[in-house]
Structure formats: C-alpha cells, structure tokens
Design a protein around this nucleic acid. Sequence first.
DNA 1: ATATCTTATAGTTAATTTGACTACAATACT
DNA 2: AGTATTGTAGTCAAATTAACTATAAGATAT
Lengths: 239, 239
Amino acid sequence: MIKKFIDEESGKIIEQKVMNAITIDCAIFGFEQGKLEVLLIQHAEGISKGKWGLPGGWIKEDESIDNAAHRLLKELTGISDLYLEQLKAFGDPNRFPLGRVITIGYYALIKKEDYDVKAGFTASDAKWYKIEDTPNLIYDHNEILKYSLAHLRNKVRTAPIGFNLLPEKFTLYQLMQLYQEILGVELDKPNFRRKILKMKLLVDLKEKQQDVSHRAAKLYKFDPEIYTKLAKKGFNFEM
Amino acid sequence: MIKKFIDEESGKIIEQKVMNAITIDCAIFGFEQGKLEVLLIQHAEGISKGKWGLPGGWIKEDESIDNAAHRLLKELTGISDLYLEQLKAFGDPNRFPLGRVITIGYYALIKKEDYDVKAGFTASDAKWYKIEDTPNLIYDHNEILKYSLAHLRNKVRTAPIGFNLLPEKFTLYQLMQLYQEILGVELDKPNFRRKILKMKLLVDLKEKQQDVSHRAAKLYKFDPEIYTKLAKKGFNFEM
DNA sequence: ATATCTTATAGTTAATTTGACTACAATACT
DNA sequence: AGTATTGTAGTCAAATTAACTATAAGATAT
C-alpha cells in the first residue's frame, strides 16, 4: 500500500500511502431448507489470518466495476450467470487498517444447486453461514452485510428477485418460506397462494415434486417475460 | 491526472495515469411550481468548458465519502442539513477522458426556500433545470442523472422522502403534485387526501395559506416521530 | 389396513381499501 | 354577479385482504 512518488513541487522522492485504492466486496446469498445463508471466506494469511470476511478483490485498471465483480464471483463460485447488483461504496478512512481503501459493495443471489464450492476455494476456505449464525467479520464487513440484508429485504418488496435464490422448479410453499425468511413475517398459506397466482408471474409446469415424504406439490417456474411487462408498470410484491 | 512514479522493479522514473482516482458527483433535486428540477453546473475551464454537468468534486484523503459529499454540497449551496444519500459508484474505464476516474454518485433533495445560489456559485455557473429540459451533460452524467431519477421514483414508493423537497409547511395539494410529478401519474384529489391522512403522518398546523388567489388550504407538516414508528414496520407509499 | 402426520389446495366470509365519482365551499378575479 | 380555481366532504360499487374452515393426497407408524 506504500508507493514511492515524486513530489511535484519539491521534486523530491517521497513515500506515501496510495490514496483511493479500490476493492470490491460481495455478499453472496443462498437459500436452503427455509433459511437464508451467506457465503463467507476465511483469510489464509496476513493480519486477518483465520478471520472470516466477505469475498472480494481488486478492480483491474481496464475493467468496469461490474465486470470486476462478475470476474471475482466467477473465480470464486464458478458461476457466471447470477443475480449481481451493486449496493454502494463504503469509504470510511479507517475501515482498512493498512491505508485508505474504498470498497464497492455488491450482493449476489445464487441458486445453491448451481454452486460448486470446489470451483473457487477449498471447503475450509469458504463456508455457507445461516444469517443468524454469522461470525464477527473483518474490517467493515459486518456493516456491508447488514446493509446488504436491509437492501435485500427492501428490494424483494418491489421486485421479484427472490426467484434467483430458488431452483428453476419450485413449489409455492418454498417461495412462501423464502418470503417469510427474508421479510421476517409469518404468512398464511391459502392467502399467499391466491395472491401470488393472481399476479400471473408463475408458470404451472404440470409437474409434481418427487421423493417427498408428504403429498407432492405442484412445481412452478418464474416467467421472465411477464415479469418484464409487470416491472414496467411498477408493481408491488408486498406480502 | 498524470503523475510521476518510481517504478519499483527498474527504479526508473515513469509517468503514468493515476489509477483509481475518485470523485463525487451529485444530483441535487428541487421542486417548484409543480415541477421537479435539478441543479446543474456550467464548467468554466478545461476541455469541458461551457458544458453542463452535475456538481461534484474530489474526496480528501482523510474524510469519509459521506463527509466529502456533505462538504461539497455545503460549499455549493450553503445548506448543511439536506437529504443526501449515496446512489452507487460509476466506474466505466472510459467514463472520464483524461484517465480512469471512478465517481461515487449521490442525490440530494432540498427545500428550495432554503437555497441561496450565491452561497456557492454565481447565477451563470449554476442553474436549476426542469427535469424535462435538462441539456446533454458531460461524461456519464446523463447516466448518473437517469439513475438518480429512477432511484427517486422507486424510493418515494416506500419512504416518505418527498417531504424533503417541500417547504416546512405545505398543503395537501402541493404534496399531491409532488407525487404526481415524481411518479408520473394523475391522482384523484379526494382519494389522495383520504389515503395520506389515514397514515397519520401529517400534523395539522391549524393554519392556512396566505396570499393565494383562491380558497386558502390548510397547512400541514411532516411528523418525523410517527414516520420512524411506521418505517420500522415497513410501509407503503404506493399511490 | 388403519390411524395419524404432514403438507397441499380449495373455499368462505367479514372487514377494509380502492377508484371513480358527485357535490359543495371558499376565495379571488373580471 | 358571475366565473375560475382550488379546497374539502361524502357516496358507493368493486376489489382486495386477513382470518378462517375444510378437505385432499400422500407417506409413515402401529
């Protein structure tokens, strides 16, 4: 983080902290067995050795911020088509102990069925944590994660991004559990069904669950075309 | 944007673009006579001379991003208590012609009654434009403004931030016009009254407008305490 | 094979909210 | 006195919501 510069006024060589170094940090969310989870990385070296944090990395000089985020996530998870959105920049001057580094926060939603931990890290380096079980994180990553969650909670109320956390084929109950978990509310099954089906956003796949120890539920998928139409008018996922 | 460095491998002096320089750009919104406006700055020198853009500036090495944004807005408008929120970072490698500069976009809502243009710039440097009359802007400022507007339109649907654009004391009709303008819809007066009053978010000031050429309307103010209570539960300003 | 458990799905109903209205009041301007 | 503009109150049918009950379809246990 220390670089040698030529001071433009005196002409002398000076050592100085590099200003405005920029990184990306990303909260990756998954959903399994009714619980929202986040993927954390254990740092292997340096002053943060052994501590957990959000995955992240440096932005290259010639790539856009979004491209950098996609590249980092691809390196880590092996997935290139996931839901990825920038949150905002975090830039407290003391957020990083070795110098001023501004980080750009992202959050991603992935279908856990697509994810293969081996693509990036070993199992001991990367681990899914249930949201309520997350350990204390390095730097300001607690803040970034908290902000991600608040953003996610808010965003699911006006856009159907929650689908990105479910498998391609899902049941209405799974979808309801997802909303219950993210919004922190209890929902009524019959009412939820009625409301979500009336939106015409789901396609009935005429298929049923397999190998479940109870009455099998119908499977649905999300219809992106109808979503696009609805999204233009501005719509409301309030549950 | 060009700085002299010492190359750490060869020891030679090299000139290089400064990587990852960071600025702030801010879309400042105002509201007058039923129209949403944005404050633009005309550049006085350099390659952008004569062109209009969003106000902005550099982040100092020892200040947080939010503090930098507040400082810049105070310098420009003389106002220190306004609604200011970070949008996100914009970082296309080619967004700025002289080198890589990442900018952090903000948007602000101000009560135009509080604003005095002389505090910052002269009248020819800074000008309020109605949203539909904005000229073509420098760099990627068109994109930043567009993103600001989309964010504003979205945010007013779930939080009562619109109040920050109105004077302390306002009428229900002014508030309705604000929503009509921002959301781009036509609203029904009686229905709007009923809905907004039922939220109990407005305090009846038992005062009336003065000097208007029609029946004077009651004045209201916004009650931040009740808002805080409502905001916790998550509420809905859908109109 | 019968009972029991779990989850799925259908339907009922009262209360509330919405959207589209009509009507009228107050004030200023011509 | 009449007209224009904005403010405020109220009506009513339609749509939506919240809180339910009831039943169906399996799987598992006894």
